[in-house]
Design a protein around this nucleic acid. Sequence first.
DNA 1: TAAATAAACGGAGGCACCTCCGCTTTAGTG
DNA 2: CACTAAAGCGGAGGTGCCTCCGTTTATTTA
Lengths: 198, 198
Amino acid sequence: MTAEATRDAPAPKPLRADAQRNRDRLVEVAAQMFASDGVDASLEEIAKRAGVGIGTLYRHFPTREHLVEVVYRREVEGLCHAAEDLAREHPADVALELWMQRFVDYIATKRGLATSLRLLLTTNSTLFSDTSGRVSSAMRSLVQAAAASGKIRADVDSSDVMHALGGIYSAPNTPDWRERSGRLVKLLMDGLRFGAKG
Amino acid sequence: MTAEATRDAPAPKPLRADAQRNRDRLVEVAAQMFASDGVDASLEEIAKRAGVGIGTLYRHFPTREHLVEVVYRREVEGLCHAAEDLAREHPADVALELWMQRFVDYIATKRGLATSLRLLLTTNSTLFSDTSGRVSSAMRSLVQAAAASGKIRADVDSSDVMHALGGIYSAPNTPDWRERSGRLVKLLMDGLRFGAKG
DNA sequence: TAAATAAACGGAGGCACCTCCGCTTTAGTG
DNA sequence: CACTAAAGCGGAGGTGCCTCCGTTTATTTA
């Protein structure tokens, strides 16, 4: 079962080259717009900035929610990918810390999309089970790698770390929310490094 | 705590006579329109048919959901009221049957409003606890009266009856849904009358 | 009853949504 | 390369949403 298959998909059909290009641009631009203006960003503006007509946007994404879902899945994709990249390019503990900082961004997006996502969940119930599984497994491998290399203490369960980060999500969104979350991550890392052998 | 008080309401403020009149008309018309055209009925059309400007509608109901909520509460109100009226004007078992038929209408409405109501629930969590309590207590008194008068058997728990009706709600909305539900109510009444002493 | 004031009204106007269909581009085929 | 069918494009236009503010009306006060 590929990632695309939502249900009984017999022929996913490859898009024509120009169609694919436009679709990608739309998602790209939508991601920016949703991030800066919220989920209520104007679809016509998104189409315009992507350099396509509004009709094209609607052909690809019949409702706003469809577009939101794709953007959200892309976000998750990026987050998981980042875990691999960071692990390759940094010492294990640094990779973990950087990733958690990025995780904060992800949560921020998720919050912004929350209302739309709620609607999606009534339609497409696999969305959350899909994504939360992938995210937590990305975190698990980072934590395990860091523990194995001795950069953080070994007696740590990755799900505990995830749980600690969960506080970020439920915390109220005051203006200083982001800074506060950043500090929380640092604090958490200090705790993880404390007593490490390496 | 009155029915109006949602939270910390120090002064409910009585409306000016014309304002109250307009508000009532709006709710009246909205109820009809939602019933016939669904929750997406045009607000401008509702205002027009109520004989007021769109601005007036928005002053009273800042969002569509507010209007939906009021209409829904009115529906529940009417349903509970009907229980008392029917009990007064009919033999206990007939009252129960008529009320259950009306309950089917109520469910039909509720289904129509479901999407909007879902949104409301994230905002105003007392909505369901308020209403479901009132409805089930209306049913309880009808069942108890019918049982006490010997028109239906005495060994019946009203919550079981409610549960049986619950099947109506979850049933798929085929075109013949309403007839089917009507038959279900009749069937249920037969069961309730079977072996009654009166 | 008349004047004063606060409350309410209403609809024009600006913006976003979304459909529809004639035009353009792509990807095959000979 | 030329041709064609199918796929895709785009934006005009009709509709609904919602705000804003000048005008009207109910109520209070004298």
